[in-house]
Simulated assay, not measured.
Amino acid sequence: MKLGVYNAILHDRPLPEALKVIADLGLTGIEINTGGFLPATHVPTMDDILVSDTARDDFLGIFEGTGVTIAGLNCNGNPLHPKPEIGDKHAEDIRRSIRLAQRLGQNRVVTMSGLPGGEPGATVTNWVVNAWNSAALDVLDYQWGIAADFWRETDRLAADHGVKVALELHPQNIVFNTADVHKLIDLTGATHVGVELDASHLFWQQMDPVAVVRELGPLIFQAAAKDVRVNTANAALYGVLDNSFRRLTPDENRTNLGGDEWANEWPKNSAWDFVALGRGHDTAYWTEFLRALHDVDPNLLVNIEHEDTSLGRIEGLQVAAQVLKDADAALTESLNPIA
């Protein structure tokens, strides 16, 4: 497998330093953020790269001799948000990322399916998680119509540029499980839209990432290595959809998600947490995860996403990289046993 790091956790340093961190971890790929919720910190010359061969070649030259290559682009955001300052911007970021991928010789862009409002004229998103009543299905019908139009058009753009768009199955998106993936493909006839298999969001939904890989097969275009630990005592009391988040104030360190929307503080007594690989599921599990991905594509890009707040930036990457490399070595050994 091709193992790397999603670069958001390394936005605190210049690209050359980030590449050295990844190389020192014994990994070979960097998935680069190119817009959406986060700025394209490591591609400051994006506008120039899109039109100038010299700018493109200068950027690609940064990677020469580092042992690290680009392992896809990432543009996570909400392209269907009803507020134009968020939805329209994130949608354009996706289109720019597709064009940028072709310019850089890449064929993968990771993003999210997005989530509209619940009705015409809405200004906030509406995530239906349990459509037991007819009104909720009305909302979903409206949202799926918007999603299908956008992704049908985006699929054509991706196909024209030889790029596959991989959707993360993330909460507060219209597509967050296997049934939704099949529905989107059925509605759009998409050939260049599929899935970024991030196991973490499947764990807390009580889905089995290995089973999901087997189900989706060739619809999986890329993967993220991120773990989840379920805190069973808290989950028993609050469930996995607990909303005990705290709103951060303007004078606190907070992440802007577009417009006037911000990430909140994670619940103190959380039902589950994002953790580094191995802190929720052991190496043996990740070996089987890689095995399932290998059966889909032996050259699939698998990139660590570090969001374990109990570990520092480098420490968390070191923990995750060791587990991922050990799992990959175990997989390789099992595929090529010594006679």
Rank of each mutant, 00 (worst) to 15 (best):
V228C: 10
A235D: 05
I220E: 04
V165T: 05
V163H: 12
R313F: 08
K2V: 06
I32C: 03
P116C: 02
M1S: 13
E215Q: 15
A131R: 15
L157I: 13
D141V: 00
G258I: 13
R108S: 06
L290K: 13
N33Q: 11
R214F: 08
T188L: 12
N107I: 01
Q318T: 04
D227K: 12
V128Q: 04
D24K: 11
A148E: 04
S113H: 08
L25D: 00
D251W: 15
K2N: 14
M46S: 04
G36V: 03
F176I: 04
G259T: 06
V165R: 12
L50S: 02
N253M: 12
E307Y: 10
T309F: 15
R246T: 11
F59N: 00
P298C: 14
W266Q: 10
I98K: 07
G121F: 12
A159G: 10
T45Q: 12
A122P: 05
L19T: 01
D138N: 08
F289E: 04
D227V: 06
D88T: 12
A190H: 09
L311A: 08
F274I: 03
A71V: 11
H81E: 00
K268R: 15
Y238L: 06
W204N: 11
M112D: 00
K325H: 08
V109G: 03
